[in-house]
Structure formats: C-alpha cells, structure tokens
Design a protein around this nucleic acid. Sequence first.
DNA 1: GGGAAACGGAGCGAACCTATCCACTTCTAG
DNA 2: CTAGAAGTGGATAGGTTCGCTCCGTTTCCC
Lengths: 214, 214
Amino acid sequence: MDGSKPLRRDAERNRRRILAAANALVAKVGLDISHNDIARAAEVGVGTVYRRFPDRQELIDELFDERVDRIVALVDQAMEIDDPWQALCAFVAGNLELQASDKGLKDLMVGDGRVTELAQRAGRRIGPAVRQLVERAHASGQLRPDVGVEDFPLIQEMVSAVMEHARHIDPDLWRRALALVLDGYRAHAQPREPLPGATPTPEQIEQVLSAKRR
Amino acid sequence: MDGSKPLRRDAERNRRRILAAANALVAKVGLDISHNDIARAAEVGVGTVYRRFPDRQELIDELFDERVDRIVALVDQAMEIDDPWQALCAFVAGNLELQASDKGLKDLMVGDGRVTELAQRAGRRIGPAVRQLVERAHASGQLRPDVGVEDFPLIQEMVSAVMEHARHIDPDLWRRALALVLDGYRAHAQPREPLPGATPTPEQIEQVLSAKRR
DNA sequence: GGGAAACGGAGCGAACCTATCCACTTCTAG
DNA sequence: CTAGAAGTGGATAGGTTCGCTCCGTTTCCC
C-alpha cells in the first residue's frame, strides 16, 4: 500500500507535529480550521502543511478515525453492563462526555454540515451497536416502547446544545439536562399520552445529522 | 421626544419598506443580517439603509419589541388555562412554535451571543410570568420538585437545537423532542434518582442565554 | 423652477482564506 | 566532508466577503 519511499527524518518529525497540533486544535475549536491555523499551532510554515496534506479533508479524516474508535470502545464497554437501562445511559453519557471534551467530535456528531461523509462512516460503525443497546433496553421494559433508536441522535443534538452554550459557565450543566431528558425516555408506571408524530425514519435522522445547513 | 422634522414622503415610504423587509428577513434567516442583505430585500440602495439606520442594532431592537409582545401575550394566555401542567406545557409549546416560524426570535431566545442586551430585556419582561407558571405546576404536584424555573431555558436550548437541524426534514420533529423532554420534567409516581448537580442559578442561566460564545 | 432632501450603488479598505513559489536550510549517501 | 536532493518558511498573489462612504443623479415640495 505505502509504496512511497519513507520521509526524511526532519520531514517525518514535522508531519507528526502537524498531526498533533491539528488534533489539539480540532478538539479545542472544532472542525473549522484552516491550513494557516494548523501551521501556526504546529509552529511550522504554511507551505509545510500544504506539502504534507494538500487536502485538508484527508488530514481531518485521519484525525477522526481514532476518535470514532473511542466511541466504538465506549459502546463495547456499555454492552458489558448487565442492566440494560444502565448500559444505555452509560453509553449516552459517555458519548456526550467525549464530546464535552472535544469540540471537533461534537461538530462531527451533531453534523454542522460539510463533513457529511465522515459522519456517515461513523454512523455506520456505531449505529448497529447502539441499536442493540436500545433493543436490550426495550426488551427489559425500561425504555418507553414508543422511543426508537432514531430518537437517540436527538438526545445528542439537544444535550450538545446545552453543552455548547453552558460550557464556560458550568461545564457540567449538560449532565443535568441529560438526566432530565433520559427520564423522559424512561418507561414509567403511570400511563402517558402517546408521543406526537411518527418516530423519525432512519433516513430522516441521517439527513438531520448531515444537515447542509442552508 | 421626536423633535426632528418629519421625513419627506419618499423617505418615509422607504423607511417602511426597509423595516418590513428587515422584519421578514430576520424571521427567515435570523439575526445575522447585514445592511446589504436588508437593502437587497427592500429593493433599496445600501446607502439608504445606512442613512436611515446607521446602527443596525437599533433597527433590530425596533423589530423585536413587537416579537417579545407576542410572547408576553402567550404567557397571559397560558395563565388562563386551569390545569397548571397544561398551562405550563401550553406556554412552552407556544413559545417554541413562535420560534419555529421565526428564526430571528429563535436566535434571540437561544442567545447566540451578540444580542445580549435585547435578550436580557426580553427575559425581564417574560421571566416573572414564567416563574408563576412554574410555581403553579409545582404546587399542584405535576412538575417534578427538583426542576426549577431555571431549567426551562434549557428546554428552549434543547428543542431549538432539534428545530434548527431538522427544520428542513420534518418541521415538526421538534414536537416529538419536546414531548419527550417534558415527560422528563413531569412528576411521576415511581421514585427517581435525584438530578445530578445543583439547579442552575438564575445568574448562570442568564449567562447561558447571553453567551458570548468564544 | 429651483434648491434642498433623499437615493443608489460603484467602489474602497479591512479581514481572512487558499495556494504557490523560491531563496534558504537541513539531511544523508557516498 | 561534501554535493546535491529533500524539505522548509513565509511573503505574496488572488479570491471572497464585509461594512461603509461618497457623490452624480433623481425626487420632492415650496
């Protein structure tokens, strides 16, 4: 695969510096970074960044494979929890926790446009596992039956919004919002009115997540 | 107050056109409109817009007094409903409904920065009434006791986020999200775990709403 | 009819981004 | 140690988007 000859030692060092700087930068300010930003952060000339990563998308993709891995690990970890509701909550909370500490990841999951293709790949890797978590919670009767997998991205959107706005005030306020929302998702003894509208279709949710934002 | 001499007829006509166009534009695309945008929409030269409204903020303020009135009317209306929980829900839903049809209003309420001062004034006019609605719901035992008035702006934030992202897919998806969230806010028979963290203070919420976003 | 008031929109400067280019530095094979 | 290949940095060209001004022209009103 990697047919090209190895980089010179200094070049390789710079490559790593760029990757590291870009990584930190994306976590701090989000997906919206220019070659110039990266160069400044890496203490390297713009030219160097362009030479090594002519396509910014490729660089970003590289950064995110690893991030998605972290989420996948999270699902696996959640699957180990016996109680299905606890497991589901653990996943949702963990996922949001990751996002809280990584604006780039948040942008990716919430889909602020642009990165569609990346988000789709992530969805394909994570989706099935989440579906399983949801099914378990349904089977155990702990998740209200009229809530579907498709409702979970909505949690992300919602709690992310709180995270975004409240980050600098109380970085943990989103936990409160999440707890309240999850209580709404939880099955309860007393009867409840049916939810308005139909459960969103997977296609719709996908569109929401990759919103072109016009 | 209005000591200046009246405008020439054509000038007055243009002033109205500008105001009308700006109003429609704000409803459609939000607070983030330039003098140029307004001029184009009003079919008027940029210069004219600048001459009449040198300070964009003043123009926008003018547009929003009327919008806030609509919300105040909504609270009053909700107060008439006998069942405290229904009343509260009616207000929250109505408020979000207004926002769904008016992006500018949404921006104002969600506080995307900038318009701080405007949002504060709005809060001062609406806040007390909402507090009353919440107190009624508490007294009747229909609102979970550990949810405070301060938690309601969070609903706005959360559901607005869904609205924003899903508008073009299913303009009513937010209703589903809202229903789920409100179910989380509602008091239930079975015991529940206490919410994590403290109820946010009013000061905190104010800060959240007027987030400088940096 | 004439002078004051208002108009329109070309266009200026600032900010910011992408991308290139080439004189200079650093590496490494021999 | 050295020559020349590989790599570097950052000034700069060129594009876009804004906010705003300025002034030749039009419109109003006495």
